[in-house]
């Protein structure tokens, strides 16, 4: 068995194009769990996430001879996974389910201070992430969990770094607002009262 970790990305691309299955096995074991976690954060569904992750590799293998890729393998895989996941979500229309969840959360109107101490907070945040708009959620996930920089995300998704910055901030603001509606509103009112 070759030590594929000693190969550069471009060498591995060549091996893949030449039909070397072990090269695919190598990049599978290296990146598959990470890709699944992105998809899981996006969909909240482990089975769908695994399917999406696997499809990326099957698809890569099918068109390996036609690929002329300059980017890193991880970058390619993330991009492929991201597109596939966004399509999946669009097809599943899970937003409608998501909207129902948002309503359920907001109707509780918890006391912000209590919530802040609450054990429940983790769960609510996880749910709230799933309620973020799809593209906003994807960008937030790449930033937060994949530890990608704004410029890396921008390059990966073919958008400007400024858009990434706006989307990450939007995500965090939406998360924060969804968790503390009372204080949030209060704060905004107070702020406008005292703002010059």
């Amino acid at each position: 068995m070759k030590d594929y970790s000693a190969y550069s990305d471009s060498e591995i691309w060549s091996l893949l194009a030449a039909g070397e299955e072990e090269a695919l096995a190598h990049i599978f074991h290296k990146y598959y769990p990470g890709l699944c976690r992105i998809a899981y954060r996006m969909t909240g569904d482990t089975q769908a996430s695994e399917d999406l992750g696997q499809e990326v590799y099957v698809d890569l293998w099918k068109k390996r001879q036609r690929l002329h890729i300059q980017t890193s393998i991880q970058g390619y895989l993330r991009k492929a996974l991201s597109n596939r996941t966004l399509n999946y979500i669009r097809d599943q229309k899970i937003r409608s389910v998501g909207d129902a969840k948002i309503l359920a959360i907001s109707s509780k109107e918890p006391n912000a201070q209590e919530l802040m101490q609450s054990e429940d907070l983790q769960k609510r945040i996880n749910e709230a992430i799933l309620e973020l708009p799809d593209r906003c959620r994807l960008i937030f996930i790449l930033s937060r969990y994949q530890k990608m920089t704004y410029s890396e995300i921008a390059g990966n998704l073919d958008i400007s770094p400024k858009t990434v910055e706006n989307q990450v901030a939007k995500a965090l603001r939406l998360l924060r607002n969804s968790l503390g509606p009372i204080v949030g509103c209060l704060l905004i009112i107070l702020f406008h009262m005292i703002a010059p």
Binding site: H29, R37, Y40, E50, G53, M116, L121, N126
Partner: peptide, 30 residues
């Protein structure tokens, strides 16, 4: 608040896919 939310979003969850089983599936398909 923002910092708290940020900190809480760090939680990745304990879920890790079974790569071996997944690879068997992928191998079967390719």
């Amino acid at each position: 608040w923002m910092a708290k939310v940020w900190e809480k979003t760090d939680h990745q969850g304990s879920w890790t896919p079974d790569s071996e089983m997944a690879w068997t599936k992928v191998k079967g398909k390719i």
